[in-house]
Design a protein around this nucleic acid. Structure first.
Lengths: 130, 130
DNA sequence: CTCCGATATGTTATGACATTACATTTATGT
DNA sequence: ACATAAATGTAATGTCATAACATATCGGAG
């Protein structure tokens, strides 16, 4: 799978670290996990993350300063991705809601605002934690 | 006005700095503006910001690591506040959209997620900048 | 194949944002 | 006026992210 994506070694290591993780990881946590693989500097992680984010294989969670592997198997080009973040267990649920996007689009049209990127993050307690 | 809010000196200085600003300010930018008033340490700013945020007089823009004075004169207790951020001129438009909140509420109910705080930030170009 | 440009990597240093810990002062209520 | 809670001052440190520069690797054109 990763092979067909033509990832470089560092990119693949970073993506795997995120895929194996239960929750989001900060760049420095990823670095710590990959020191055994020879990675030493934060920039090595950030560079890999940048490429992975370009390809939508990884998302940044703004409210956590952390990163998650994309769990949406569809190709969400252009789509806004949203997150529900459990403050108890740390799990992050990624979703994309058509109606929500329409509603955001309606607001931006009404206000003549040209949207580029939308960040939507909901913090609370997931089904398992309340 | 500020007097009726019973703000402390530091809180008032920080709030005024934000009110006088065209756009969002980072805590360190606020500090720089207030050195003349005798403030010296980041913590003095962060503490004032925390109190102001508790009282919803100030909001944090997560995607900018910066803060804005609340521009909504209504009392938005419990409401989700959203932001449209112009990447050209830096202006931040604060808004609260009923339909949007309903839609987010619908998603959380469907997924049995108990929401606490929602962050919604749209980056793009404002009417004046495109 | 070999050369070249583009891309990725390695490394050090530094910048930007935020908090911990502790001592002191000021405000508030009884 | 006294006790307690809230706010303040200060230094040090922790966390997140990027700049600058040198080197190596990949992929295509000749």
């Amino acid at each position: 799978m990763s092979e067909t994506l033509n990832l470089t070694r560092n990119q693949e290591l970073v993506l795997k670290a995120l895929l194996h993780s239960q929750g989001p990881l900060s760049a420095y946590q990823i670095l710590d996990e990959l020191r055994g693989e020879g990675l030493r500097a934060p920039l090595q992680i950030y560079r890999a993350l940048d490429k992975l984010r370009d390809r939508k294989l990884v998302h940044r969670i703004e409210t956590l300063n952390a990163f998650v592997a994309c769990s949406c198997h569809a190709d969400h080009a252009g789509e806004t991705v949203a997150f529900a973040i459990c403050e108890a267990c740390g799990k992050v649920e990624e979703f994309s809601d058509e109606a929500l996007q329409k509603r955001i689009g309606a607001w931006t049209r009404e206000h003549d605002f040209l949207p580029a990127r939308t960040t939507l993050e909901i913090k609370g307690l997931c089904a398992a934690c309340h």
